[in-house]
Amino acid sequence: MKHLLGIAGMSRESLDELLVLTDSFAEINARAIPKVPALRGKTVATLFFEDSTRTRLSFETAAKRLSADTLSFSVSSSSVKKGESLRDTALTLEAMRIDAVVVRHGSSGAPWQLARWLDCSVLNAGDGWHEHPTQALLDAFTLRQRFGSLDGLRVAIVGDIKHSRVARSNVWAFTALGAEVVLVAPRTLLPPSLEGWPVQMSEDLDAVLPTVDVVYLLRMQLERQNEALVPTLREYTARFGLTVDRAARLADRAVVLHPGPMNRGVEIAPEVADLERCLVLDQVANGVSVRMAVLFKLLAGADGSTASEELDRAGNG
């Protein structure tokens, strides 16, 4: 595995392998000194064309806990603003002999293009509306932590699926791992076609809620109202928001996930966000472990040793 570009097309086995690896790093993260020398001498660059402090910090924390050096390419103050092409930016980074580039880009597919131009590993930290694979892995890990397995779970993904890279990655991750997915959104917020998507769909959140183990809420942005995709955010909340009343109708064991940052009062009521069943902070914590696992998987063992040998050394280090 050289790159992590997207979840679509990944096998259950390779997803499981990453989740099992994540267990080891979750254990390391629980230690007093959560740092191992596994990637000492490696350099990881973050290249974010869209601001996302949370995701960037999560990747940089993961890299540092593996003892990799990190460098952060800030697009807003860089030559990209001066018209440098994506390819030139990437080649410049590579000339600094980095081992991996973590890229966030507003244009779907940008990490695929980078992977064609670069010899180093490319990690997709979110591309357009397309994929956000480490988010899906951390969500799957969070559910696995809670339920032991995703097999047989029924997951409702609620909200702006059309514009959501999180939803696109999660549909593939959840279904590959054995869960059943139902998309809940008005037609205007669904992709134009669901051909080839292994999902059910519904516009009736109230009917779906009692049947699911997981409610995955997506961030609802104000601009969707201006694009005539929903009449008002108020009406959106009335139909698709997880209000206190709706949360009360969830099954006892059901949990609520959200990729953050939450719009309290829009897709989720403030009281619901603070419930024990809302696992948002678990997701954030697991994000670091998952990203450690991915970086380790892509970068360790390049000298010929196997991942498990490396990890043994890492665990003892």
């Binding site: 597919g109 509306w129 397309h130 992709p191 134009p192 051909e195 080839g196």
Partner: peptide, 15 residues
Amino acid sequence: HEGMWSSLLGIAGIP
């Protein structure tokens, strides 16, 4: 083109 592929690829479509 807006359709199956644009939906999968997360690219805005032209119907």
